[in-house]
Design a protein around this nucleic acid. Structure first.
Length: 189
DNA sequence: CTTAGGATCGCCT
DNA sequence: GGCGATCCTAAGC
């Protein structure tokens, strides 16, 4: 039986619930990473979601078991990392949009060619470049190496807002962030 | 501070 | 053939 509860989070829960709970969780890939400070939820019945039009070869892992990675290429250039949630076959996930880097800063700086630590992981494409996430991790369980997750400290204040970079369902406030963090991709209003 | 455009790949219509 | 769950740089106001 597959593990669906990791770092205190039940990944069979709805995407917006998981997205909120992921704020503050530490995620490492091969020992490089940090605390999640920004996420976005994407559900099956969601015009902005890749899963909206049903399973395809690209989004197949989104319809796989929960607590697995869904990695896709964005604009032909960048990689983006999602954590699958709900039950297998549902087609929901959480986009990891930004981290506060805590481990492996030197490695990130080399990969990203960036000078400021707030520029290393402040966006879904940047974060994947900094952590070395590629298609090779698509469909992999996040309960096993190279992934490593650690629970969020209690009592964090989470703020919400509209999702970024989409042209549908702009009114749904399914972007979540750590209040006051300067490591988010864009400030919350 | 806001807007615009290019890079570049794979999906969907 | 069109258009992204992006990023970076440059120019305009």
């Amino acid at each position: 039986m597959a593990i669906s509860t990791i770092a205190g989070i039940d990944f069979t829960a709805p995407a917006e619930t998981v997205a909120r709970q992921l704020i503050g969780v530490t995620v490492l890939v091969d020992g490089v990473g940090g605390r999640i400070v920004e996420t976005e939820a994407y559900d099956r019945e969601d015009p902005a979601s890749h899963a909206f039009s049903g399973p395809t070869e690209r989004n197949a892992s989104m319809f796989g078991p929960p607590a697995h990675a869904y990695v896709y290429r964005s604009y032909g250039i960048h990689w983006c990392l999602n954590f699958v949630c709900r039950e297998a076959g549902h087609g929901a996930g959480v986009l990891i949009r930004a981290l506060e880097p805590t481990v492996g800063l030197d490695t990130m700086r080399v990969r990203r060619d960036a000078d400021g630590e707030w520029l290393l992981c402040s966006g879904p494409g940047k974060l994947c470049q900094a952590l070395g996430v590629t298609r090779a991790l698509n469909g992999q369980p996040i309960s096993l190496p190279p992934f490593e997750l650690a629970p969020a400290p209690p009592g964090l204040e989470v703020v919400t807002g509209p999702r970024i970079g989409i042209s549908k369902a702009m009114d749904v406030p399914w972007r979540f962030g750590l209040a006051g963090s300067r490591f988010v991709s864009r400030p919350f209003r």
